[in-house]
């Protein structure tokens, strides 16, 4: 088995909730601006229709352009695509986004599980998935699906996370290939996605 550092990822998916905006800002600021793969984000938010503002706030510190994930549009290398509020975000086999208003999964929509499971099917071992701060257990099933498809699973160090519950739930349910802080996660992404 080659070590993780020698492996190459074809897409990055991130899931977070409480504290997500701050964690994402730190992480995205530390990414290389010429990242060769798409970054796809689900972050739970309380309110509908604040999508433009959320994207704008994330873009302020990000090394990469941040956009809302558009229905039927392809996930593009070097971009951060954010799931709109109120919809599940799924990746289709052809690498395009689709949305759904299927019922909430574990009380949330968008659901990290839904994104991770669909991305795992498309990218398989090429997927790099990370569960960051959050105060619920969304993402645990999704991370398990990523691991079953031999993707690389990262959990933010619960000691560092603003809300440790989501990382802890993911660790307990799925385990992880790495439990690290945001700065090391950024370095790992930069390394695997040149």
């Amino acid at each position: 088995m080659p070590g993780p550092a020698s492996m190459v990822s074809t897409a990055v998916v991130l899931g977070c909730s409480t504290g997500g905006l701050r964690a994402l800002s730190t992480l995205l600021a530390a990414l290389r601006p010429d990242l060769a793969v798409p970054v796809i984000v689900v972050c739970h938010r309380s309110q509908d229709d604040d999508d433009a503002l959320f994207v704008e706030l994330l873009a302020r510190h990000s090394a990469l352009p941040v956009v809302e994930a558009g229905e039927r549009e392809p996930a593009r290398p070097g971009r951060v695509h954010v799931a709109p509020s109120g919809y599940h975000l799924l990746l289709e086999a052809d690498g395009r986004f689709m949305l759904s208003v299927d019922p909430r999964v574990r009380h949330v929509r968008p659901s990290v599980d839904v994104l991770f499971e669909s991305a795992a099917e498309v990218h398989g071992a090429g997927l790099l998935a990370a569960i960051l701060t959050g105060a619920n257990d969304d993402g645990a099933d999704g991370l398990l699906a990523v691991r079953r498809h031999r993707g690389y699973a990262v959990v933010q160090d619960p000691a560092e996370a603003e809300a440790p519950q989501m990382p802890q739930a993911a660790l307990k349910h799925a385990g992880a290939d790495a439990v690290i802080g945001l700065i090391r996660l950024a370095a790992l992404i930069n390394e695997r996605c040149r």
Binding site: H88, E92, A93, M98, D102, V114
Partner: peptide, 9 residues
């Protein structure tokens, strides 16, 4: 129907 969500259902 788009497959990813159909498959889930």
């Amino acid at each position: 129907y788009a497959r990813a969500s159909l498959k889930r259902r």
